[in-house]
Amino acid sequence: MDNYGIVLAVFGAILAALLSGIGSAKGVGMTGEAAAGVVSEDPSKFSKVLILQLLPGTQGLYGLLTAVLSLTQLGLLRGELIQLTFAKGLQYFAACLPIAIVGYFSAIYQARTAVAGVGIVAKRPDQSGKAISMAAMVETYAILALLISILAINGLK
């Protein structure tokens, strides 16, 4: 039963990187498709749509950050895994969940807003700042989830 603790903690860390990474990949891909549509008609709008395409990519970085922090604390990166009780492992697992779940969904919803923003850039390139602001609003919730995951992991030291 004692071994399950570390397994659960590592699983949590991997889930944080995995889900938010998948969300970001989907989001960046979807926005990239829309961006390509605009650039194929007007290549001068590349820089404006590129910013929008990058926005849903941040969740993947947040997941990576959470995973690295957890794995460092668990000793996996040093090659010396620490011993964890099942309860402690479960706490690590739970600490990783906010960024894993919120990261996944916020990346996809942010991508939808970014795609809508690409539509704004296509028709009114002078309003691209507003399009970026709208998509950036979704980022708030990914940051809040990252914050709670990091605070929880640090609290488990």
Partner: peptide
């Protein structure tokens, strides 16, 4: 619906 992201963007670029 999301498979139309590219198509809709091209149409948006043509709408002006």
């Amino acid at each position: 619906d999301t498979d139309y992201a590219f198509a809709v963007a091209r149409i948006r670029a043509n709408e002006p």
